[in-house]
Simulated scan of single mutants.
Amino acid sequence: MRLRPIKAADLDGLQGLAQQAGVGFTSLPDNREFLAGKIEAAAHAFEERTPVNDRLYFFVLEDDATGELAGCCAIEGQVGHEVPFYNYRLGRLTHASVQLDLHRAIDTLFLSSDHTGDAEVCSLFLRPEYRGEASRALRCGALLSKARWLFIAQFRDRFPEKVLAEMRGVFDDGNRSPFWESLGKHFFPMAFDEADRLTGLGQKSFIGELMPKFPIYTTFMSDEARACIGQVHRHTRPALEMLKKEGMRWEGYIDIFDGGPTVEAYIDDIRAVRRSQLCQVEVSPNVAVTSESRWLAATTRMADFAAAWVGRGPASDGTLALSEDEARRLDVTTGDTLRLLDTQETS
């Protein structure tokens, strides 16, 4: 498997991913014209033809054996500049009556744009066909998730101080969001699917226009909806665990529509950013080929960035031996530089 920047020829494959992602995957709507625009925006970002605060770096996971797209992921350079970035901040109000000796603390939701200017890791999706076998799903999912950190580490000066990730919220077996049913539908005269579609297409101004500006008391919501606050969809749990291991944490912000958590961290505190290292390539036909999912390597060029698993770590002199297949997958030769990460390192 190889992660690389998306290109124009991937439009059909990307739309196929969008169709499989389904409802609730806001950043990947099934709209061909919009997806084509996303690909074009990504091309401009990788060529550094757009301002740093308006860049979308979009990647695809390519199956080396078949050439098909197995998944995708992306990085937004900064959120909230062109289109408002809204979420709810979970807070608490305390009410007390001295005369009656009564005290009550009530959870509240505040409409917020606190993350404006932060980077976002987003759009991570792995096709169901690649989730069946546990070891394969782990390799693919980890490659999609962790390669983004190597990209950020290599081009650190293109990114701000903080990074966030919005996680998909809870849906029941009927693909219904209890959080939306109890809250969102009372303010938006449309179905969840339509609100989600508009948001995915970047049409977010209606959120600020229609949502109440005052705190919302969660006690008015159903028990089922309150239980969804800060919780993730069952398919999103592995992605959340990977982000938590990198140092991202939930600080009380949730999605407007489904109540899923927004996790965040300072970029320089992300484990993969801190622990990745540069090494020089040595290609050899005598290198043993392994399928170990420990060492992740990425190129240091932006326009044709690539990332893949390699079978070993660096030698004591800082060189990294690659098999001919590994070098071909990463499109590197002897003397080139790679950024390397030991994914099993815990400190």
Rank of each mutant, 00 (worst) to 15 (best):
G71L: 13
D223G: 08
G260C: 11
K162I: 00
L143H: 05
P128V: 07
R329P: 01
N175M: 10
R2F: 10
F85Y: 13
F187R: 10
R148M: 04
E324F: 08
C72F: 10
H95A: 11
M1Y: 11
F192A: 03
G77W: 03
F171S: 03
Q203P: 07
P238K: 05
F159T: 04
L340S: 04
G141V: 02
L14T: 05
G247Y: 06
N175C: 12
T26H: 12
L150D: 02
A147M: 05
K244G: 02
D255E: 05
R4P: 06
W295I: 02
L320S: 04
D10M: 08
S291F: 09
D255Y: 10
A9T: 06
V332W: 11
D157H: 03
A9L: 14
D12A: 13
R89F: 06
P189M: 14
P5Q: 11
E292P: 00
S323E: 04
D12K: 15
T300D: 03
C122M: 07
G132R: 15
P160Q: 07
E181T: 11
R328D: 10
S27P: 05
A327P: 08
N87G: 13
T290G: 12
D325E: 12
E129D: 14
F159P: 01
R176Y: 07
R55T: 09
P84Q: 07
D258Y: 11
L143W: 07
D118H: 12
P5I: 09
R301A: 05
E246W: 08
I254E: 07
F179D: 12
L28S: 01
G260K: 03
Q15S: 09
P160G: 03
R104E: 03
F214Y: 07
Q99N: 13
K185I: 10
R148S: 00
F206I: 03
F25D: 00
A195E: 06
A36I: 00
A142Q: 09
S182E: 06
T290C: 12
E120D: 04
S284G: 06
I75Y: 01
A147L: 05
G132M: 14
E166S: 08
Y86S: 00
H95K: 09
C140E: 01
D30V: 04
L240H: 02
H186S: 14
G117M: 07
F151T: 01
S276H: 02
L35N: 13
A119F: 08
T26P: 10
F59W: 07
N175K: 13
R329S: 05
V163K: 09
Q344V: 03
A41R: 14
C140Q: 06
R329C: 10
E47M: 15
C122V: 13
A308E: 00
I106F: 05
K146Y: 14
D258W: 13
C228L: 11
